[in-house]
Simulated scan of single mutants.
Amino acid sequence: MKLNAEDLAKITSLTLANYEESAESFEAGTRDHDVSQNIAALLRHIQGEPPYDILDLGCGPGRDLKTFAALGHRPVGLDGTPRFVEMARKASGCEVWHQDFLHLALPASRFDGIFANAVLFHVPGQELPRVLRALQTALRPGGVLFSSNPRGGNQEGWNRGRYGAYHDLDRWTALMTDAGFEHLEHYFRPDGLPQEQQPWLASVWRRIG
């Protein structure tokens, strides 16, 4: 079923409202999550000498912005939740843009890398090609995008007040390839568990052209 403009606006507003209402508890619950494996996966594929210009897409309260900055890079955050934008600016001291994923206004060829950790699954499937092309354009030629999403059987819908789309590896590969990316690597998380106990699909992609 195709979603119309009203449907998309509702998905965005309700999902962001859910995050807004739970901003403090979300920050406390994710503060100590170890995503060093994901950060390393992005950084090792970026070409050229650091420091790198990195977009932390869906940066939330700013945990990973602080990490990128501490590593000497030049991160910029982006989030659609007003409270997260405020928290991320305060926590990291970094520039943080207030944009939602369906209304991105990104400068062309601005970033060496994009870190999309647990965020792109909130984009309805029909809108993903457009959003991924916007991200591809925001990367410099040869730039790298990291994504981590909860995997599934290519279904989408509401889950505890937030909208999500849950792709398998084949579908995600097709979406990324069509948007102008080449596959570099993928793995499942959490690390060290049997695959049936690894609900997250992490993947790394390079902009073609």
Rank of each mutant, 00 (worst) to 15 (best):
T67P: 03
W97G: 02
V96P: 02
K90D: 13
V85D: 02
A69S: 15
L104C: 05
D64Q: 14
F101K: 00
D64K: 13
A69F: 02
W97N: 01
L65D: 09
R63E: 07
S92L: 03
R83S: 15
E86Y: 04
K90G: 10
T81L: 08
W97T: 03
V76K: 13
G77M: 11
F68T: 00
E86C: 00
L106C: 00
F68D: 09
Q99V: 10
R63C: 06
F101M: 15
R83A: 15
A91I: 04
R74P: 04
L102N: 09
R74T: 06
G72P: 14
K66N: 12
V96N: 06
V85G: 03
D79C: 09
A105Y: 06
K66L: 15
P75H: 05
A69V: 07
G77R: 14
L106S: 03
G80W: 07
H103D: 09
V85C: 04
S92Q: 10
G93L: 02
A105K: 13
G77T: 12
V76G: 13
H73A: 04
W97Y: 00
F84G: 05
R83V: 05
P82S: 04
K66F: 08
H73I: 07
R89P: 06
D79R: 04
T81S: 14
G77S: 03
K66C: 13
H73L: 11
Q99N: 02
C94R: 13
L102R: 09
C94K: 08
W97H: 11
C94P: 00
R83I: 02
A105P: 00
L102P: 13
H98T: 00
L65R: 10
L65A: 08
F84A: 10
M87W: 11
D79V: 10
V85T: 06
F101W: 11
M87L: 09
V96D: 10
E95D: 13
D79Y: 06
D64S: 10
L65Q: 08
F101D: 01
S92K: 02
C94N: 08
R63P: 01
A70T: 10
V76W: 04
L65W: 05
H98I: 09
G93R: 11
A70M: 06
D79W: 04
G93D: 07
P75R: 06
A105V: 14
A105Q: 14
F84I: 12
D64W: 14
Q99E: 15
W97P: 00
G80H: 07
S92A: 09
P82N: 04
A105M: 02
G80C: 10
G77N: 07
A105H: 09
A105E: 14
Q99K: 12
L102Y: 10
Q99C: 08
A91H: 13
Q99G: 14
R89H: 05
R74W: 05
G72E: 03
P75D: 00
P75S: 11
G77Q: 05
D79K: 08
L102G: 12
L104W: 03
L65E: 09
H73C: 07
D64T: 04
G93V: 07
F101Y: 11
G72Y: 05
G72T: 01
G77P: 08
E95T: 15
T67V: 15
R89L: 03
H103K: 12
T67G: 00
F84E: 07
H73T: 04
V76R: 07
L102H: 08
